[in-house]
Design a protein around this nucleic acid. Structure first.
Length: 384
DNA sequence: CACTGTGTTGAA
DNA sequence: TCAACACAGTGG
């Protein structure tokens, strides 16, 4: 917790719409609108026994007259904090639901008019933070502050590398080129692995002792901001470093052929995020599924993920029984608490989840993101 | 002691 | 998935 007493007094800076009664808000979803309104009048007595239910989705009354916000994910409740005003809780839910379920999710109040720069920026902001980070902000009532700060930073940032495409505001990070490899026939063949040339592997992807055979899961982002997860390990048999699980999917989706060039980059920023890119043998693509981003030798840039992350996050909720099983195991074995999975560490004990064994790689990211307690780094990516 | 938010359950 | 309800824990 910061400051300790910050809990009250809407840190949500939305003073304009706070006026008087909750009636001033946009009509809540559904038609269960009137329930609460009449309560002001007659229910003084009754309120002692029964709490007034909220008109807003994801909002629950608290015994002391305040309001809690919660959202459900993977059969678990994620607590979003408590709020003085009902509509503040509703807003917290709205924020969360858009991060958890995408921009088209049903919200209580503001469906973020998709065309506005404001909304667009907020979506970008949302998606450039992990769910746990967003939840953490909501709980601490710092979401609006952080959003605003981010907006300020962004507008101040006279980044010469700001890209021209997209709609303006997007942030960019510099990348450094790590290395390229022309893939061999076996790299794109049935072996389902990519050999990382030893010198590059040891230089850029050093394995911790003990992880050599077991491997680690590396996360790369491609030009379309899709996240690719590959198992990276050392094969004693061939004495080579390889990307295994997940690689064949990449080959398939990109339609990689022998001789094509795969390149690896890494963010020069603190997050050390990894990127993967590819191009065909002779640079000019032949019927590529995706436009080829020419690999620039020195620096490349990344846009803050907006759309693509969302797809990854959300598409995962359907299948993946294995993962769910594991998830459940984690819950049962330790603390059945979303905080753990979300990595919300600031209020309570911090845990690090490291579900290395995310098998049956279907390319779908999981809703929970890898987090470290300090929440200052985007730990969706393994750092070196 | 005040309050949060988790445990739990039943309904949708 | 969701809200209702009770109350165990937590923190001041």
């Amino acid at each position: 917790m910061n400051g300790s007493s910050t809990d009250d007094q809407s840190t949500t800076t939305d003073t304009t719409s706070t006026v008087a009664a909750p009636v001033t808000m946009t009509p809540p979803i559904g038609s269960a609108g009137s329930v609460v309104l009449d309560q002001e009048a007659g229910l003084e007595a009754e309120s002692r026994s029964k709490l007034p239910s909220s008109r807003y989705k994801g909002v629950v009354p608290q015994p002391n007259g305040r309001w809690g916000a919660q959202i459900y994910e993977k059969h678990q409740r994620v607590w979003l904090g408590t709020f003085n005003e009902e509509h503040e809780a509703a807003k917290a839910y709205d924020t969360a639901v858009q991060r958890f379920r995408g921009r088209d999710a049903v919200t209580n109040l503001k469906p973020l008019p998709a065309d506005s720069e404001e909304a667009s920026f907020e979506l970008s902001f949302l998606n450039s933070h992990s769910k746990s980070e967003i939840v953490d902000m909501l709980r601490k009532h710092t979401y609006n502050d952080e959003l605003e700060q981010s907006r300020r930073n962004n507008s101040l940032q006279k980044n010469p590398f700001k890209t021209g495409f997209g709609s303006g505001h997007k942030l960019v990070n510099a990348r450094e080129q790590l290395f390229e490899k022309a893939v061999t026939p076996s790299d794109v063949g049935k072996l389902n692995r990519l050999v990382i040339p030893k010198q590059h592997a040891e230089k850029h992807f050093p394995l911790q002792i003990g992880n050599t055979s077991k491997g680690v899961l590396l996360h790369f982002e491609d030009i379309g901001m899709k996240v690719w997860r590959f198992r990276y390990s050392y094969w004693n048999s061939s004495q080579s470093y390889v990307l295994t699980k997940g690689w064949s999917r990449f080959v398939k989706e990109k339609n990689l052929k022998a001789g094509d060039i795969v390149s690896f980059q890494r963010s020069t920023g603190p997050d050390k995020q990894l990127y993967i890119d590819w191009k065909t043998k002779n640079e000019s693509g032949n019927a590529n599924p995706q436009p080829i981003q020419p690999v620039q030798p020195v620096q490349m840039f990344r846009l803050f993920g907006v759309d693509i992350f969302r797809g990854d996050d959300n598409s995962s909720s359907t299948n993946n029984n294995n993962n769910n099983a594991r998830l459940d195991n984690i819950c049962n074995g330790k603390r059945n608490n979303m905080d753990m999975l979300l990595g919300i560490g600031n209020c309570k004990k911090q845990r690090i989840i490291h579900p290395l064994d995310d098998d049956d790689d279907d390319g779908a990211g999981k809703w929970w993101e890898w987090n470290r307690g300090d929440a200052s780094c985007k730990s969706l990516y393994i750092e070196f």
